[in-house]
């Protein structure tokens, strides 16, 4: 079941950025960090583009199709997850719009941006939890070895799952790590002069 390992690996990478995003929001809200819009844009690009371009298509086109065919009782759960995927575009636009307004308006724009960002983070975690706690256990039990072999082959076609076709998302991830202040990343910690 390599497909499940790939999904878990992608969730871990996404989760790492979501966690760091929450940390940045905390630090800015509490006045320990000045907003770094380059970093915020990079994080938003990662948490929106990677799921949308790499993660969700594999689920929608391969795993969910096999599950619907084999386990009709999983239909409602898959509907909910696919609704989340579809809603993603609206939330992304909202997130980008509130960031743009924050940049233009200054500190007055932070509260709206923070609320939108925290809602996005919470929705992302709920979605990941639903997949890991409900969908994947169902799939693990319900699909046959032959079905898993086909799903694994389709997932493995993209050997390095979260790098992107030309490694662009791996580079983006490294850039984020270098900008996020320690201890979450490798950037200078808030208030550090080193």
């Amino acid at each position: 079941m390599k497909a499940i390992d790939i999904i878990h690996a992608e969730h871990r990478a996404l989760g790492a950025v979501l966690q760091a995003f929450g940390f940045i929001l905390d630090e800015v809200r509490d006045g320990r960090l000045k907003p770094d819009f380059t970093l915020l844009e990079a994080m938003i690009e990662y948490i929106t583009e990677v799921p949308d371009k790499l993660h969700h298509p594999k689920e929608d086109e391969v795993l969910f199709v096999a599950l619907r065919a084999r386990l009709p009782q999983a239909g409602a759960l898959i509907d909910k997850l696919q609704h989340d995927h579809a809603e993603g575009n609206r939330h992304i636009a909202e997130l980008r719009d509130t960031l743009r307004r924050y940049r233009e308006e200054g500190p007055e724009g932070f509260r709206t941006f923070e609320a939108t960002a925290r809602a996005y983070i919470a929705n992302s975690w709920s979605h990941v939890a639903l997949e890991e706690r409900e969908l994947l256990p169902l799939a693990r039990k319900g699909l046959s070895e032959g079905e898993w072999a086909n799903i694994d082959a389709a997932f493995e076609a993209n050997k390095d799952p979260w790098s992107g076709p030309t490694g662009e998302f791996r580079s983006l991830f490294t850039r984020i790590v270098s900008m996020v202040p320690a201890p979450h990343g490798l950037g200078p910690s808030a208030g550090s002069d080193t």
Partner: peptide, 10 residues
């Protein structure tokens, strides 16, 4: 932190 763990894994 998870972000650094992912980077080291790469």
């Amino acid at each position: 932190a998870p972000l650094i763990v992912q980077e080291l894994m790469t």
